[in-house]
């Protein structure tokens, strides 16, 4: 019954959890979600059963924290069309350029979550379904719809950019 020092958990999984948080709640709120995730994980860590899938455990916590963030954001964003009113953050850290997040936020939340948990965190669809409810097949459909939509919007924009540059 011995856990590795929590520091190794932060180093090993911190980057993936940050990518997941950025994809689900956006680059600005992501750091709050990450911080709450790792503080909650630190608190619960001594009781984590040995041999647990640490990454899936962290994604589960991050999922709950992100949902809290999304709810809080929708409470704050009383009925305006915030897609147009919010100032854009310009150059965001870590390559989370405004366009990628703009494309992600146009997805329904469930597609965004599915894409993040499967493609960024590498969770199998069965685990994604456990987190979000519904069947693994439904999770697979949501992810493929999400990725298809991102290809249509975000990657299309990039391609056009490149063509117009060349």
């Amino acid at each position: 019954m011995s856990q590795p020092p929590f520091e190794t958990i932060v180093v090993q999984y911190g980057p993936t959890v940050l990518r997941v948080c950025r994809a689900v709640v956006g680059p600005d709120a992501a750091e709050d979600a990450w911080s709450e995730t790792f503080l909650a994980a630190l608190r619960a860590y001594p009781d984590l059963p040995p041999g647990s899938n640490v990454e899936a455990w962290l994604v589960t916590i991050a999922h709950r924290k992100a949902v809290d963030q999304v709810r809080a954001a929708s409470r704050r964003a009383v009925p305006s069309d915030d897609l147009h009113d919010e100032p854009t953050s310009g150059d965001l850290p870590g390559g989370w350029e405004t366009e990628l997040w703009a494309a992600l936020r146009r997805l329904p939340l469930k597609q965004r979550q599915t894409v993040a948990y499967h493609y960024l965190a590498g969770l199998p669809y069965a685990d994604v379904a456990d987190l979000l409810g519904g069947s693994p097949a439904a999770a697979r459909r949501a992810a493929s719809d999400g990725i298809a939509a991102l290809r249509r919007t975000y990657l299309q924009d990039e391609r056009l950019d490149e063509e117009s540059r060349s």
Partner: peptide, 25 residues
């Protein structure tokens, strides 16, 4: 963990680790 999709992965251009953000966090 390999998360890349062969064709048109929208995340493929993202760095795996954002050092500055990890230090801050």
């Amino acid at each position: 963990m390999n998360t890349s999709v062969s064709n048109g992965d929208p995340f493929v251009s993202l760095p795996e680790i954002d050092e500055a953000a990890q230090r801050r966090l």
